[in-house]
Amino acid sequence: MLLADCGSTWTKIYDTENDTLRIIQTSEMVECNNCHFAIATGHSARSRCNLFRNELLALASGARAMVDSSSFTVVDVGGRDIKLISIENGRIGKIDWNLACGSTTGATIELLGRYYGIDFSEMEPSDEWINVTCGVFGMEKVLEFVSTGGLPSEGLARFIHGLVRNVHNFAGRPRRLYLSGGFCENSCFVGTMEKYCEVIPLGRAVLVEGLKAVQDE
C-alpha cells in the first residue's frame, strides 16, 4: 500500500509493504499518469488517492505519534507555506497555516542555493538577518547584498535567519520547537533556530507518519 505526502515541491511516498520511503519532485509526480495512492495528503494528491487527509490533520497525527509529550509545538516548514500545531495537555492549542504571508520562502532558499551553487551543509548560521516579508522581497534583498560585495552564502544565511525569525514568531515563540519538513536537514536553518529555542528535528516524514495513523484507524 502506498501512502503519500504530496508537498508543493517534494512528494514523499511510503510503501507499507517493504517499509521504504521514496522522495521525488512533485512536478514529476503530477506528470505521472499512474501515480495513485491508498492514503495521501497535499492538495495535488486529492484526485490521486482513495482516501484524502488534510495536511494539518496529517501533521497533528504524525507529531502525536512521534513526540512523547502531552504539550508541544510543531511546525512544518515547506516550500511555500508554514503549518503549525500546538498541543497543550493533550488538547489542541493552536492551529495555523501561513500560506499568504510566508509564501514561497522555502522554495526561494532552494532556488537561490542552486543559483549561487551553495552547499547548504557547509553554510554557517549568521547573526545578521534580513526582513523576509515573502520569498520575492527576501530574494531581492539577497541579490542586493551580493551585488554590493557580500558573499552569496552569507546573504542566504541572513535570508534563512529572517525566515527562522518568522517561523519562531508564527509558532508563538516556544522554548522548544519540533521541526518537520525538509529544513530538518538544513544545518544552517536548524543552527539559526537554536539561537531562539531548543529545536528537535522530526524529519521529512512526519505527515507520512500521520497517514500511517489513518491506516490504523
Binding site: 488534510n54 494539518l56 490533520l57 497533528a60
Partner: peptide
Amino acid sequence: SILSKVEAFIKL
C-alpha cells in the same frame, strides 16, 4: 488552507 484549518480544528 482555510478549509483545512477549520476542518482540523473541528476534528481535533
